[in-house]
Design a protein around this nucleic acid. Structure first.
Lengths: 126, 126
DNA sequence: TGGTATAGTATCCTAAACGATACCATGAAG
DNA sequence: CTTCATGGTATCGTTTAGGATACTATACCA
């Protein structure tokens, strides 16, 4: 009880991180429900092992729901739980900052590539 | 150009993750400016190596500023850059979700500890 | 009888993150 | 001449994350 902010942030980040979790979550946000094979198709470089592992962790944290249909060949569908959907604003905030960061990077590069020769740049005061 | 949301989220998370970065950032948010030794004191289990490494990464990403005073013994002060301060709302969002998550966990545990014997729980319909 | 599709496991290996420990340079104070 | 404080590096070992690959069960379909 009475956890510190740093502890809470770390817990939240643990749930969000892992090489594939953001992509998986964004897939499920935009597609609502996806079969295992559909997720795999949409995440071209993931291995089956990693996809299973990351989904299991998300399931353990009650972020995604796993629905098994007893048919052959197997059909398993993944979707966000209601609780998982509370992550959407967080991911939006992170995504928005990521956008700002991309802009910030090009500005830093612009500053660095000014030095070498007196080239392209137009709006300089001398 | 035209990065995907998943890519931006991953970039942002790369900057935020690392075993000690959240704690370091929160220290700098709440204390404004801290010397190396003060950071180390406030993060009891961090090693010098890790503190240096994580600070260097944050510096590289333009999140923290490193001010060196040429005195002996050395004095080095760390603080958030203006750009680094744009992370504060993001960390707040993550922290808020982390709080919700802690509550969610105790509720799940309450549901699980109902099963074993017919103990404590009061409001069940049979 | 054999191939196909799905949703996985199991095993092994590599690379990266992290941790423990020891060492270093400097100048002031004693 | 020694000691102390600060803010580091350097080196080594362990632990964890992730990747490659092979294998499996099942029922249907040809």
């Amino acid at each position: 009880m009475e956890k510190t902010p740093s502890c809470r942030v770390e817990t939240a980040l643990e749930i969000l991180t892992g090489k594939w979790k953001p992509s998986i979550l964004l897939e499920l946000i935009t597609h609502d429900t996806l079969r295992f094979s559909e997720l795999k198709r949409n995440l071209p470089n993931i291995t089956q092992k990693m996809l299973t592992a990351q989904l299991r962790e998300l399931e353990l944290n009650d972020i995604v729901h796993r629905e098994i249909y007893q048919v052959v060949p197997p059909r398993v569908e993944y979707s966000l739980t209601d609780y998982g959907k509370t992550l959407i604003p967080v991911l939006n905030a992170i995504n928005a900052w990521g956008e700002k960061h991309a802009e910030h990077l090009v500005q830093k590069e612009r500053l660095q590539t000014v030095t070498p020769t007196l080239s392209s740049s137009t709006s300089d005061s001398f």
